[in-house]
């Protein structure tokens, strides 16, 4: 809890929320300025940052250094699990639990097992993609500190925001705010958590 914190920062979400600084947020009036500011911040060594814009901006995720392989690898693991499950289920049913001669074919007939193995791979991979994306993004999220930013409602209209978060090792409320001001920001505000 920082010394600058005052009781007026208490909000409707409870006593533990709205305490202390979350980030310094800069507001820009064009996507180009946002991308170049993000690139400058990344060059300056900031790592914990996020950008908010009314529409997808080409190259922005590269500019903020966003690179996350968690979802692809989870999907791959989910697919493998699904394949193993589909094959295992059929093996258990057709070979171990209730062996039945179908058309004189061997009990372990790989071709007949392909469709279900394949479908289970797709199903598990698809479900893993959906739920792991939600989990890694910590969604659903009823409260997010970015909404404490003054004028943030225009992030869905015509303004572009860059937040450098307190968790960044280089974060310093004054210096970071000064750095962002020099990047041609319209406003820079220290935002409460």
């Amino acid at each position: 809890m920082s010394a600058t914190h005052t009781s007026s920062n208490m909000n409707a979400y409870g006593p533990n929320l709205g305490t202390g600084t979350w980030a310094v947020v800069a507001e820009f009036d064009s996507p180009e300025k946002l991308v170049s500011a993000a690139e400058a911040a990344r060059r300056a060594g900031f790592k914990k940052m996020d950008a908010y814009s009314p529409f997808p901006i080409h190259g922005l995720s590269d500019a903020i250094g966003f690179r996350d392989m968690k979802v692809p690898f989870s999907v791959f693991a989910g697919g493998l699990t699904g394949g193993a499950f589909g094959y295992g289920l059929q093996f258990y049913v057709h070979v171990l639990d209730y062996p039945m001669n179908v058309g004189g074919k061997p009990l372990v007939s790989l071709p007949s097992m392909i469709p279900i193995t394949y479908e289970c791979t797709i199903l598990f991979a698809g479900l893993t993609a959906f739920f792991s994306m939600l989990a890694y993004n910590r969604l659903p999220k009823p409260y997010h500190s970015i909404f404490n930013t003054p004028g943030f409602e225009r992030a869905t209209q015509d303004r572009f925001f860059l937040a450098i978060e307190k968790e960044d090792p280089q974060f310093d409320p004054e210096k970071t705010a000064q750095f962002l001001r020099e990047l041609d920001a319209l406003n820079v505000s220290e935002v409460e958590a």
Partner: peptide, 9 residues
């Protein structure tokens, strides 16, 4: 193609 032919036998 293989599966259908294999299955029909």
């Amino acid at each position: 193609q293989f599966l259908i032919i294999w299955n029909g036998n």
